[in-house]
Design a protein around this nucleic acid. Sequence first.
RNA 1: GCGGAAGUAGCUCAGUUGGCAGAGCAUCAGUUUCCCAAACUGAAGGCCGCGGGUUCGAGCCCCGUUUUCCGCUCCA
Length: 487
Amino acid sequence: MSSSDNNRFQAIIAHAKEYGFVFPNSEIYDGLSAVYDYGPWGSELKKNIRDYWWKSMTQLHENIVGVDAAIFMHPTTWKASGHVDNFSDPMIDNKDSKKRYRVDHLLEAHAETLSPEAGEELLAAMDKLLAAEDFAGLKKLIDDNKIKCTVSGTANWTDIRQFNLMFKTEFGAVAAANEEDNIVYLRPETAQGIFVNFLNVQKTARMKVPFGIAQTGKAFRNEIVARQFIFRMREFEQMEMQFFVRPGTEGEWYKYWKDARLQWHLSLGLPAEKYRYHDHVKLAHYAKEACDIEFEFPIGFKEVEGIHSRGDYDLSQHQIYSRKKLQYFDNDIDETTGKPYGNYVPNVVETSIGLDRMFLLILSHAYDEETITKEDGTTDSRVVLHIPPRLAPIKLAILPLTKKDGLPEIARDIMKDCREEFYCFYEEKDAIGKRYRRMDAIGTPFCITVDHQTKEDNTVTIRYRDTMEQERLPISRVKDLVKEKIR
RNA sequence: GCGGAAGUAGCUCAGUUGGCAGAGCAUCAGUUUCCCAAACUGAAGGCCGCGGGUUCGAGCCCCGUUUUCCGCUCCA
């Protein structure tokens, strides 16, 4: 990251706070690390991005429907998904090399250097301590065996700490005798709420494979490193769609969604050269194919969305753990056999985009510090957010040129007429130029100004954010013009 | 987690050898303004990140702490 890019990123963060888009969480208490709040214009922008995604997925696809599953899920869900076992490992750091190890890996590696009997004995002791979550005992085991770091060659270890990906909380108002019985997790991904509802949705909405289930919602992950603003947060929002297909067709659907999702980004007017695919070479154990859609943020090319061909892994896992069938009966005729395809566990192609990352994408692409040359030759600067009009928090600012001579009344009437259709903003304070610049700073694409000519012929000037050009039009045209531009 | 730098008004910052807490912009109340932040008058705004120490006296020196930024480390 160059220093100018970094300055730009810092300027965007400062702008986001100053103009009511994103605030540090719990700021009066010195903040909570890697958690942020959305302010007045931020929450509008975020909602508009979410709505645009939701509409493009559900309203515009006859074979995709939505759900809104709870954040809490039965704890077994996360055993089935692999999150409990894969992401809750005790870790230990070597103080000299700063290298971090998983405790079990460290002990297993050491056991291999011992005689078979001694090795077995060590691993048995480890398993017992791991099961009991006896970290002090595990540390003693490492010390007693004089296990050294392969990098520094020393045995100068920190205490053992648990790395927990998932946030835990207690379910039920009354404490249980065994507190383990009461633990529920805050979901680390929204996808599982779709998988466990697969049959409910398929039956009640009478969906036929191939079909998709869309969902937006909060998810929670303990990240090892905070920082990077809203790019990496502990509480974040996902927009996911799981597309269920006939086994054997997942390859073509993966290609379809890989292309369709990039087209969605480009449909917002974002430049293709700022996007690239990153195909995964090393795949997770359940994935058949996977790629990221990356965007060139001020902090470099970063993942904003993932497309994964997940096979039948998730539904099969839930079948095993729930002992319920999660299968679909396909009545379509298989041309090779002349018979229906029959029962199967569908394969899944997932599209998963981070709403907060999309927000940062829009914000960082929109942010611009312009130098403009005025008519008299002097230069001036402005900070403007070129947010796509359909996503802008405020669509139209209605400004009386002065606050007397009946101009505010006319402006108020226009406001009254338009506010049901889209977000409007009225302001009569300060010089008109100042008001234009304030609207530029929060990305309002259109301003109309009521002046004395308005009283004579019912026309107003409309001023465009991106070009700063103005034109005159009848008041009666205003609402339709803005509606056309934000479609 | 380790190392470095920084925290002064809403924002951007100044603050002399340790001697009354400052400016511009923003805000508020007026005045003035017919189209691109900078017209005039006035007002308000501060636990100088937090806690301790040194000193007659600390925004400034010392110690601790916290937050942010930068680099390294980690990242399903």
